[in-house]
Amino acid sequence: MGRMQITRFGHAAVLVEAAGSRVLIDPGVFSPDETFALEGLDAIVVTHQHPDHLDQDRYGGLLERNPDALLLCDPETASIAQVGDWSTNGDGVETVVSDLTLRGVGAQHAVILPTIPRIGNVGVMVSAAGEPTLFHPGDSYEHAPEGVDVLALPLSAPWTKLSETVDFVQRVAPTTLFPVHDRTISEAAYGIYWGQLTAHSGVQDARLLGQTDATTA
């Protein structure tokens, strides 16, 4: 199996480098400026419209630096995006980028409160022949696709609780995982969340295996 390089850029933003291609997922408001200075991207994928997944004020510059990148997002985000020619992703939709395949997973954001309308959310699986398969679910624990080697795991949000997080990991059953969606946890409490998750899910942290570079926690 080939070596996929994964770099975290704060909260939900993840750069995936595999099969000679570079894909950036969810460049949001909690991500540092260096996220929006990336160049040489083959695709930019946004799972949903919330600002912690797409920074409307900064992503225009990212598109200018990557004019040939495929832009892929859920249908609702495509309808409101202020800049760029976005293609729509959907559950089961496969988009080929060079030797990579991007497959959409799911359709809706997790329930935050019964009184808050649910918006669209399409997670993404990134795969290529001879490479591990990565799954970034966006903001949802609803779907547990088969064949996931590396899980980008949303660790904390208004829609999560730890028992559901552990259950999600066990249903996906990845080989390894690493945290995303974690800027809502204080530094003092972070070890409690992650320690409980790894202890009870039984899945090893991909960072301990050298599969990810955590550039920004």
Rank of each mutant, 00 (worst) to 15 (best):
residue 4 M to T: 04
residue 6 I to L: 02
residue 7 T to W: 08
residue 9 F to Y: 13
residue 14 V to E: 02
residue 14 V to F: 06
residue 16 V to Y: 04
residue 16 V to L: 09
residue 16 V to Q: 09
residue 19 A to F: 07
residue 21 S to K: 13
residue 22 R to A: 11
residue 24 L to N: 15
residue 25 I to H: 01
residue 25 I to V: 12
residue 26 D to K: 13
residue 26 D to F: 07
residue 28 G to L: 15
residue 49 Q to A: 13
residue 50 H to R: 11
residue 50 H to L: 11
residue 51 P to S: 04
residue 55 D to F: 03
residue 57 D to K: 15
residue 57 D to E: 09
residue 58 R to E: 12
residue 58 R to C: 13
residue 59 Y to Q: 00
residue 60 G to Y: 14
residue 60 G to C: 01
residue 65 R to W: 13
residue 65 R to E: 04
residue 73 C to R: 15
residue 75 P to Y: 09
residue 78 A to Y: 07
residue 78 A to F: 10
residue 84 G to N: 01
residue 87 S to E: 04
residue 87 S to V: 00
residue 91 D to S: 06
residue 91 D to F: 09
residue 92 G to R: 08
residue 94 E to M: 01
residue 95 T to F: 12
residue 96 V to H: 14
residue 96 V to L: 04
residue 97 V to E: 14
residue 100 L to N: 11
residue 102 L to N: 01
residue 103 R to Q: 02
residue 103 R to P: 03
residue 107 A to V: 06
residue 109 H to F: 09
residue 109 H to N: 12
residue 110 A to R: 11
residue 114 P to H: 03
residue 114 P to N: 10
residue 118 R to N: 10
residue 118 R to L: 15
residue 121 N to T: 03
residue 121 N to A: 04
residue 122 V to K: 00
residue 122 V to P: 07
residue 122 V to N: 06
residue 127 S to E: 15
residue 129 A to E: 13
residue 130 G to H: 02
residue 130 G to I: 06
residue 133 T to E: 02
residue 140 S to H: 15
residue 141 Y to K: 06
residue 143 H to P: 00
residue 145 P to N: 09
residue 147 G to T: 05
residue 147 G to Y: 10
residue 151 L to E: 05
residue 152 A to H: 08
residue 153 L to T: 13
residue 154 P to V: 05
residue 155 L to Y: 02
residue 156 S to E: 12
residue 158 P to C: 10
residue 161 K to I: 11
residue 162 L to F: 09
residue 163 S to F: 14
residue 164 E to S: 08
residue 167 D to K: 01
residue 167 D to A: 15
residue 170 Q to F: 00
residue 173 A to I: 03
residue 173 A to K: 08
residue 177 L to P: 05
residue 179 P to D: 14
residue 180 V to K: 10
residue 180 V to F: 00
residue 184 T to E: 13
residue 186 S to Q: 12
residue 193 Y to K: 02
residue 197 L to R: 07
residue 200 H to Y: 15
residue 201 S to H: 04
residue 203 V to W: 00
residue 203 V to S: 09
residue 204 Q to D: 10
residue 205 D to F: 12
residue 206 A to F: 13
residue 207 R to I: 08
residue 209 L to M: 02
residue 210 G to H: 00
residue 210 G to S: 05
residue 212 T to K: 10
residue 212 T to M: 11
residue 214 A to Y: 11
residue 215 T to R: 12
residue 215 T to W: 14
residue 215 T to I: 00
residue 217 A to K: 04
